[in-house]
Write a protein that binds this DNA or RNA. Structure first.
Lengths: 196, 196
DNA sequence: TTTTATTAATTGAACGTTCAATAAAAATAA
DNA sequence: TTATTTTTATTGAACGTTCAATTAATAAAA
């Protein structure tokens, strides 16, 4: 069975299986058995590659966060206008769904757990502050600094709020699309309201 | 030790202890031992009064939801104007904090778990729809029906989003107050934007 | 004494971790 | 090439722990 160079493959398999398991069973219901079964591997392999269950959980969060970051970078170029950039930020945040329908539930589980896990809280804060600072720098190109900070705070809350309500009500993809449009509409209304 | 008529007292003790335990340890880390220890009672008493751990968890969610409902009713009278009523809705939702600082973290835990627990999901949906319908009926007094529904959807998302971000960043009470003001300001801007 | 209220002890299932064993692949030697 | 050794990858059973639930015992009140 063993082939060399399996490490990156196995790591990704286990991370994918973790996302699936947390989406299906929740973080409470996720065990090393539920993960390894979904990955088609043995339970021992988790400790081998990630030191233990907690290590795998953290690696999975890191993977989701880096994916979100990549989604945004993928869209933005040097010629992107501030207005476009704001729309891309909205799209990248709602794309948390598109990649895998599973990931939405998984995000929520990790958010809740971050209240009781220092390491997860640190990771979650990095992400939250990045959203805020991305929004702020874009709004600053369109209005004064104080208004830009306010707009960014409101916009970040609107994005997270729309997304949260869509997840909690177990919305289908159409309803998610609808929420994404509402978020984009709100960005435009903020620009009109405060824009120079 | 045994006195008669202890049932309502014990039930409330155990519910309070559950809120404390979930706030401190999370839903994952909350056990019948952590609850009964906080309540100063034995673990067996939980099965006696609530049938088991799950029954106590559900009773606790019901208690939090009915509290939220009561907060709103407490504020609203027959002479309340639609504008005032909207402000009261915001206040009632942010008062999820004020009663006990613990409850915020507890809410988040229950929200996450509702993705994987049909009974909790039903309870959570009742609450979510009540917020939406309260907002809608108030906005309808100030604008046409279609705009009112849109305003209610945006407003509900803004309230939840501001609240969520405040909880996740482990904000102090001042920051919560700041978010409550932002939510009220947003209500007013919606009235101005769509108002007849 | 009977009923109510509560505890303390116990059970068995489920969990994460560890680790000795194994199998295949790669490297080396003949 | 063929045989031997070493390394890498993986398994799954065993272990100790933790948990929710149950049970029997106990204490107070009626």
């Amino acid at each position: 069975m063993p082939k060399v160079g399996m490490e990156p493959v196995r790591r990704q398999q286990l991370i994918d299986a973790t996302i699936e398991s947390v989406a299906e069973f929740g973080l409470q219901g996720t065990t090393i058995n539920s993960i390894s079964k979904k990955a088609g591997l043995s339970s021992g392999i988790i400790s081998h590659y990630f030191g233990g269950k907690q290590g795998l959980i953290e690696a999975t969060v890191r993977y989701l966060l880096s994916n979100l970051k990549r989604e945004l970078i993928k869209r933005v170029t040097t010629t992107t206008t501030p207005e476009q950039r704001l729309i891309f930020i909205v799209e990248a945040n709602f794309a948390r769904l598109q990649l895998q329908s599973d990931t939405t539930k998984t995000w929520l589980s990790f958010w809740a757990q971050s209240m009781h896990d220092a390491q997860l809280h640190r990771l979650q804060n990095v992400n939250s502050r990045r959203l805020f600072s991305n929004l702020t720098s874009s709004f600053k190109a369109l209005m004064n600094d104080a208004d830009a900070k306010l707009a960014a705070e409101l916009c970040a809350a609107m994005i997270d709020g729309l997304w949260l309500r869509a997840v909690l009500s177990k919305s289908d993809e159409d309803q998610f699309e609808h929420c994404e449009q509402l978020a984009k509409g709100y960005v435009n209304s903020l620009i009109k309201q405060y824009g120079a």
